[in-house]
Design a binder for these strands. Structure first.
Lengths: 318, 318
DNA sequence: CTGTTAGCGCGTTCAC
DNA sequence: GTGAACGCGCTAACAG
C-alpha cells in the first residue's frame, strides 16, 4: 500500500507547476495542448486521482448529498432510493445514506453528522411523526420525499388520486359495497390522506362508507379483515399493498374470493400472489429521481421559490 | 444561511488559541477544567460543528467506508445493510453506499469514486460473476460479504448448513422423495453450493435426487414447479425463499398441499403466506454487523491474517 | 497547561 | 501559457 501521489508529485514528474496540473484536472482551457498531453500522460501512467477531501475543503462543497431514510427494507423507500442514486451518480455526486428506523432522535443525530460532513444537500424521506424543523439549517438545500411541507421543496405521492382511481375502478364495475382498510390517522399520508380520499369518494357517489384501521403489517391486516367485511362486502380497498396482502390472504382462507381487492404501491408480491387484485403504481422510482433532480437544481441555482411536485400515479389492473 | 464558524472563530470568541479549542474538541486531557468549560460554552452557544472535510484531509482518513451492494431491493442485502450501518454509526463512521445492479462495470466505477474519496475501507456485497480483483487497491481494508475469497477478509453464509438443516428436518419426518429447485450453477453460492449440499445429503442418505434449476424469480419458480414434481414428491426444498414462494403458490393452485416446502432466507412473506413452510434464517443482519466489525478491526490494527467468518444459520419451523 | 507554527492536498488569485 | 504564493479548517509538534 504505497502512499498515494499528490498533485505536487505529478507536477514534478511532468516537470511543470502544481497549478498547471490543477488546470489539466479541471479542464481549464488555458493550457497548451502539448503541455496538457504531457501532464495527462503522467496522470494516466500513475493513475493519479485527486483527493476529494482536499477538494471539498478548498471548494467548500463536498459533492456529497445526505439521504435520510426511515427503513431500507421498505419497498417504497429502497425503490425511490435506487432512482435517486442513479441521478446523483450521473451528476458526480455521492450519497451518504442514513437510516432512522422511524426515530426522530436518530434523524437528528444523522443530520448533525451530515452537517459536519459539509454535505451539499439533504434528501429526507418523511415518516409519520417526523420533525421537519430539524432540516432548517440545510434549507434551501434540501428536499423532502413522501410528505408535504410548506418550508422545504418536496416530492410527494398522489395519495388522493391513488385511492380515487381504485375506487373508480370498482365503481365502474358496478360494485357498491366497498370497504376500506387504513392505518392510524396519526400518519398524514398513508393514514389520513388516503382515508380521507375514501370517504370523499363515498360521499360523492353516495356509497356506504365502512372503514377500519390497523397497524401497517401483514398480520394486522389479516386479523382486521374479519371485522371489516360482512356478507354484503363486494370489495376491499387497502391503504397499502402490505395491507392488501394481509387481507387477500385472509379472504382466501375464508373462501371469500368473490370480494375484490385493491391496494396501493404496485408491489410485486401482491400481483404474483393474488393476480386478481388491482393496485396503484405510485411511481417510487421516478419520485426518487425527481427528488434528486430537484435538489441538484437547487444546488446549481439558488431557488427563487419552494417547489412542490406530486408524482402522478396510475392504476395497474391484471 | 450564515457562513459556518471555524475553529479559529471559536478560539477568538473564547479568548484562547486554536489548538486549545482543538483539544477540547478531541477530549484531550491536557486542558484546565475552567478553560474547557469556557470553550465548551462558546461551542454550545453557537452550536459549532468541526468540519469533517478539514479533519479528513489532515488526518488522511475520511471516516467513511464505502459499501457496494448489488440491489437495494434485495431482502438479504438491505437487511445486512441495516446491521452494518448501525455498527458503523456506533463507531463514528459514515457509509457511502453505492448500488451496482449486478454490473461489474458499475462496480468498477464506484470503486474509483470511493478511492478518490479516500474512504477508509470497503465492504463489498458479492454477486454472481463479480470480479473481486478490482478490490485489490483497497486491500487489506476491505471485507467481502456473501461470498468467499482467498484474497480478502470475508463474511459468508452457511449455504451448506442451510440446505442440510432443511433436508435433515424433512428426513426426520420420514420424507424420502425430496426434490430441489435451485438456480444456475454459475452462481457460486445460491446456485452451486446449495445444490451441492443437496446432492451430498441425498448421497449420504441414499435418497433419490431430483433437481431442477430456474431463474431467481417468483414466476420462474412457479413455472418450474410442474416439471420438478411428480406423484411421489413429498417435499420441495428451494435454494431461496423467493423460489419457495413461487413453488408454494403453484402447489397451492395445483391442490398439492401434501407436499412440504422448505426455503432459505427466512423471508417474512413466506412465513406469512405459507405458514406450513419451513425456512432457514441465514442471519443477514448479524452478517452485516460482523462485516462492519471485521472491517473496523482491520482499520484499527493492520491485520496479520486474512479473516474468514461463516455466519451460523438455524432452521425456523412453524 | 496553553499559544504559536507548520503543514495536509488542492484551487485560485496574482505576477511573470 | 505558466508558476509561485496563499489559504481552506484542522491537528500535531514544538515552545513557553
Amino acid at each position: 500500500m504505497t502512499k498515494p501521489l499528490t498533485i505536487l508529485d505529478i507536477a514534478r514528474l511532468a516537470g511543470v507547476g502544481k497549478s498547471t496540473v490543477s488546470r489539466v484536472l479541471n479542464n481549464d482551457a488555458r493550457v497548451k495542448d502539448s503541455t496538457r498531453a504531457k501532464v495527462q500522460a503522467v496522470i494516466d501512467q500513475h493513475d493519479f486521482l485527486p483527493s476529494k477531501s482536499a477538494r471539498a475543503m478548498r471548494a467548500q462543497r463536498s459533492g456529497v448529498v445526505g439521504v435520510i431514510v426511515a427503513k431500507l427494507s421498505s419497498n417504497s423507500e429502497n425503490t425511490a432510493l435506487t432512482g435517486l442514486l442513479n441521478t446523483l451518480y450521473a451528476r458526480g455526486y455521492d450519497a451518504a445514506i442514513m437510516e432512522t428506523q422511524f426515530s426522530q432522535q436518530k434523524a437528528q443525530a444523522h443530520l448533525d453528522v451530515l452537517k459536519r460532513r459539509n454535505v451539499d444537500g439533504i434528501i429526507f424521506f418523511g415518516f409519520s411523526g417526523c420533525d421537519l424543523s430539524a432540516l432548517a439549517p440545510f434549507a434551501p438545500h434540501c428536499v423532502v420525499l413522501a410528505i408535504d411541507s410548506n418550508d422545504y421543496a418536496s416530492v410527494s405521492y398522489d395519495n388522493q388520486g391513488a385511492v380515487t382511481q381504485v375506487m373508480a375502478h370498482f365503481y365502474a364495475q358496478g360494485l357498491r359495497y366497498i370497504h376500506f382498510l387504513g392505518i392510524d390517522e396519526h400518519d398524514e399520508t398513508t393514514g389520513r390522506a388516503r382515508a380521507h380520499a375514501y370517504h370523499s369518494f363515498c360521499d360523492r357517489h353516495q356509497l356506504p362508507a365502512r372503514l377500519h384501521r390497523c397497524e401497517m403489517s401483514l398480520h394486522a391486516a389479516y386479523k382486521a379483515t374479519d371485522s371489516l367485511i360482512d356478507s354484503q362486502t363486494q370489495a376491499v380497498v387497502c391503504a397499502s399493498d402490505t395491507l392488501a396482502l394481509g387481507v387477500a390472504k385472509r379472504l382466501q382462507t375464508l373462501g371469500r374470493e368473490d370480494i375484490a381487492i385493491g391496494g396501493i404501491g404496485n408491489h410485486d408480491m401482491l400481483r404474483f400472489m393474488f393476480p386478481r387484485a388491482v393496485s396503484v403504481e405510485l411511481g417510487y422510482h421516478q419520485a426518487g429521481q425527481h427528488a434528486a433532480e430537484l435538489l441538484l437544481k437547487q444546488l446549481d441555482e439558488t431557488p427563487t421559490e419552494i417547489t412542490h411536485w406530486t408524482q402522478p400515479c396510475h392504476l395497474v389492473v391484471p
